[in-house]
Design a protein around this nucleic acid. Structure first.
Length: 572
DNA sequence: CGGACAAGCTGA
DNA sequence: CAGCTTGTCCGG
């Protein structure tokens, strides 16, 4: 018996043949994790195929050790596809699909799927999982659990949630309903044994179910599903492919579905009135019509902060002040080293955001020591709101570690929307910053923020309330919440993407690193067009679809040196 | 990736 | 020319 082994070594993308000693034959199959001798040293690797005859005349080495079970053959096969789709090494996908600690044997599979105790009847869930792929648009306040329930009823299903905490919560609810459940990656062995529905976050896209009976992705628009480091694989796209291969129904659930999903699957949505009920009331504060000098806070937000209900104010700017001007001469506060804008620290000094140089609060032009805040950050916002509201206001950012507790008023970056679990109102202090962010997905991302905030306040019948401060009150993203109709954004945005040839109207990859230049020189051909390099030394490869793009990337030899290829880059 | 080996550089 | 650095090649 011959094992074809892919070593778990960075720069090796080849498969090598090894002899399987007779006493190990029982333990070796496609997916098995082994240790082998390569060039005199021991390295880990995966058996990606078994054969009777070697492909070489060389003398074969025996497999040194069987480390344990690895991904099932269907997933080993899927890693080849993923390596093509995201232009990355197959070994990195095999690593994600492998157990966190060695698995020598599997627990017994549950004899049969236990009969759920309390059936949840839901026509939309049934329709979304009737067969093939569907986008299921459910408003933020509507519980998606019936979809998960319906999927698990069909057999061992694969269910993704954007965060580990949400996945754990779903697992608990499924268990309470009588289903056998495995949490990925903790229960890797149970998942591999079969018979259990598997629940997890991004990495669970690679959970070891042989063939899911159904696939559900909750909040499929969530950016947490995409890996930031190259290869930039997307969990949603991985499970879509798994569902396709298994012939299993696949429901992509979201209050604001991504254009990518809408472009490739039919939409299922509740009635207008049901959808409306699931979005909160939104108050749009048109800042163009307000008297000048109010700063970050409209009268409406100040009133809400005073009134008593729990208010969360969102401002996506960290620190105290992001842009300052001298009180006496009006000159902008800039770095004496690199001339970039300086920010004000909590200690009152000025710090450069680009190079980190710090200096006392002194104007470079006139020597005055006082500055006016032109663009406040959350720290300043917290101070101001506390003064205006006359009660304690807490600050929350990604860095702050204090428990949110039940502080009545919170000010924070968007991290606050992840840390708090409920609110009576959420106010976006500078929503234009989100709408106008220089990224092609800014609109989708802004809408995602509104949907997340909507979850914290609940639907309109629960008194849920969003306040959006903006100078673009008729922007289609705001329109979505005003009318509780996400298609208002999708229509406008997909036309815009088509005009600009941006995804999903094209497939793009960002290429950077020292080897980028020779790589793109060899790339530009059949169906792949190139732009670049940008100031940061990045190229953009674009094709009509992923097939053309990924074929082009795969057929181009990689020159030596560091090369980063980010297919479907999030930020652009 | 990391070991092997070859070619290139330095100093006595 | 020994002794060391740097570069290139390749793995079962």
């Amino acid at each position: 018996m011959i094992a074809r082994v892919l070593p778990d070594v960075g720069a090796i993308h080849r498969v090598f043949d090894y002899l399987v000693p007779p006493e190990l034959e029982r333990d070796v199959a496609v997916g098995t994790m082994v240790r082998v001798t390569l060039q005199g040293r021991r390295v880990g690797g995966w058996v990606v195929a078994v054969a009777d005859e070697p492909e070489t005349d060389r003398a074969l080495q025996p497999i040194a050790k069987v480390r344990g079970m690895g991904p099932p053959p269907a997933l080993v096969d899927l890693t080849s596809w993923a390596a093509w789709r995201w232009a990355g090494p197959r070994a990195s996908f095999l690593g994600t699909a492998s157990p966190p600690t060695a698995v020598r044997g599997l627990p017994p599979a549950p004899a049969r799927t236990p009969q759920p105790t309390a059936p949840v009847a839901d026509d939309l869930a049934k329709e979304a999982l009737a067969g093939g792929r569907r986008v299921l648009r459910l408003p933020p306040a509507r519980d998606p659990f019936p979809v998960v329930f319906e999927a698990a009823r069909l057999g061992p299903a694969l269910v993704l949630a954007p965060s580990v905490a949400q996945a754990a919560h779903l697992a608990m609810r499924l268990r309470r309903n009588g289903f056998a459940v495995a949490q990925h990656p903790r229960d890797w062995a149970s998942a591999a044994a079969g018979g259990s529905t598997v629940v997890g976050a991004r990495a669970a896209a690679w959970a070891p179910l042989a063939e899911p009976a159904a696939v559900v992705v909750l909040d499929e628009h969530d950016e947490g599903y995409q890996e930031e480091r190259a290869p930039t694989w997307h969990a949603r796209d991985v499970v879509i492919e798994r569902a396709r291969r298994a012939g299993a129904p696949c429901a992509l659930v979201s209050p604001c579905p991504s254009l990518e999903s809408l472009a490739t699957a039919p939409l299922v949505a509740p009635s207008r009135s049901e959808e409306r009920a699931g979005w909160p009331v939104v108050e749009v504060v048109d800042r163009r019509k307000e008297p000048p000098g109010l700063g970050l806070f409209s009268e409406r937000v100040v009133t809400l902060a005073r009134e008593g209900g729990r208010l969360i104010a969102v401002l996506n700017r960290k620190g105290r002040a992001r842009l300052l001007a001298c009180v006496s001469c009006g000159e902008l506060g800039r770095c004496e080293v690199c001339e970039s804008a300086v920010e004000q620290t909590d200690a009152g000094t000025l710090r450069c955001r680009r190079c980190g140089a710090e200096r006392p609060s002194v104007c470079l032009a006139c020597g005055a020591t006082r500055f006016r805040v032109l663009r406040a950050g959350v720290s300043k916002a917290r101070e101001d709101l506390e003064r205006l509201a006359g009660r304690a206001v807490a600050e929350v950012s990604a860095e702050s570690t204090d428990a949110v507790g039940d502080a009545p008023v919170l000010v924070g970056t968007e991290a606050v929307l992840h840390r708090a679990d409920r609110a009576d109102a959420v106010a976006f202090l500078d929503f234009d910053q989100e709408l106008l962010a220089p990224r092609y997905r800014a609109g989708e991302q802004a809408l995602g923020l509104l949907a997340r905030a909507a979850r914290l306040v609940g639907g309109r019948r629960d008194g849920g309330r969003l306040v959006v401060q903006t100078r673009m009150p008729t922007h289609e993203v705001i329109d979505v919440v005003v009318h509780a109709d996400p298609s208002r954004f999708a229509l406008v945005e997909s036309a815009r993407r088509a005009a600009l040839r941006l995804p999903p109207e094209s497939a793009i990859a960002e290429i950077s690193g020292e080897a980028a230049s020779p790589f793109v020189a060899a790339l530009g051909n059949d169906g792949v067009s190139l732009t670049g390099p940008s100031a940061a030394g990045r190229w953009l490869a674009r094709a009509e679809d992923h097939r053309r793009l990924c074929d082009g990337l795969a057929s181009t030899p990689r020159p030596p040196g560091r090369l980063r290829v980010a297919v479907d880059p999030l930020r652009l």
